[in-house]
């Protein structure tokens, strides 16, 4: 089975803080990590390979430093990694990114399953997975909480609000995964050594025969006009009373005064 996992290197947004005085992001010391949902997708891919055989390849679009993210996936047990990197990709929105990754995967040859995390924690768009599927004319199943391969079909439990929807689809298919599907493994020492030695090929826009009108800023219909820090919620009222019942009584009267209840 041929599995391709799309991964993104992201700043660890949980480490990002706001400078309360300047009202700007403090990013000093914020590490770059593999998007946590993509790491889960890598784990799922390795588990599928362990059960059904085949090959797991990881692919990322990003600057040269994104190789670190790919090495981490190799250390976990992915077989190969490819970085698609070119200045011409800069400024890509989700449409241009989907196209670029789809063309990359096309060049990689036949694929049975494309796996993506449900979204990346920096942009939180959840749009690139479906965009890749559309570009490749593949069916998609998003928010997968369980994946079972039987012959040429895949059965997926999709997390949907208060239920699980069980779907069946013939491969090839693009699937995005949620957190509950698997816990990413830690790389072994051997895996890490192998990853460190691995040469990661870097493909340029020309290598994937990309249409220059569809990549980077040129291929991106959306433009960021302004970035700003959100309004902090106004300081609330903190009740510290002698007893719990007094505190609750105070809260009830405040809620009532504010016409919340």
């Amino acid at each position: 089975m041929e599995i391709v996992v799309c991964v993104k290197q992201v700043p660890d947004t949980t480490e990002v803080k706001i400078d309360p005085v300047k009202n700007t992001l403090i990013r000093e010391g914020v590490p770059s990590i593999v998007n946590p949902f993509d790491k889960i997708a890598v784990e799922v891919a390795i588990q599928l390979k362990e059960k059904h055989g085949g090959r797991v390849r990881v692919v990322s679009m990003g600057p040269p430093m994104a190789k670190d993210a790919l090495k981490e996936c190799l250390a976990m047990g992915a077989d190969e990694a490819i970085l698609v990197s070119d200045r011409a990709f800069a400024g890509a929105d989700t449409l241009a990114t989907s196209y670029t990754l789809a063309e990359t995967i096309r060049k990689m040859g036949p694929v049975d399953i494309i796996l993506c995390g449900k979204q990346a924690i920096d942009g939180d768009t959840a749009q690139v997975g479906p965009g890749i599927a559309e570009n490749l004319g593949m069916p998609q199943i998003t928010y997968a909480a369980k994946i079972e391969v039987n012959g040429d079909t895949v059965k997926v439990d999709r997390e949907h609000e208060a239920v699980y929807e069980v779907y069946e689809v013939k491969m090839p298919v693009m699937i995005t995964v949620v957190k509950s599907i698997a816990e990413p493994r830690f790389p072994t020492v051997k895996g890490t050594m192998r990853a460190n030695r691995a040469e990661i090929p870097v493909w340029s826009a020309a290598d994937i025969n990309a249409d220059e009108k569809r990549i980077g800023l040129n291929g991106s219909p959306t433009q960021v006009r302004r970035i700003f820090t959100p309004k902090q919620r106004s300081n609330g009222e903190i009740i510290q009373a002698e007893t719990a019942s007094e505190a609750v009584a105070q809260l009830m009267s405040k809620l009532s005064d504010a016409k919340i209840i």
Partner: peptide, 18 residues
């Protein structure tokens, strides 16, 4: 003008599709 949070809600962005 599409306004959306990014970076886990740490920043907001105004986005256009001109």
């Amino acid at each position: 003008i599409w306004t959306r949070p990014a970076f886990g809600g740490n920043i907001m962005a105004d986005i256009l599709c001109p």
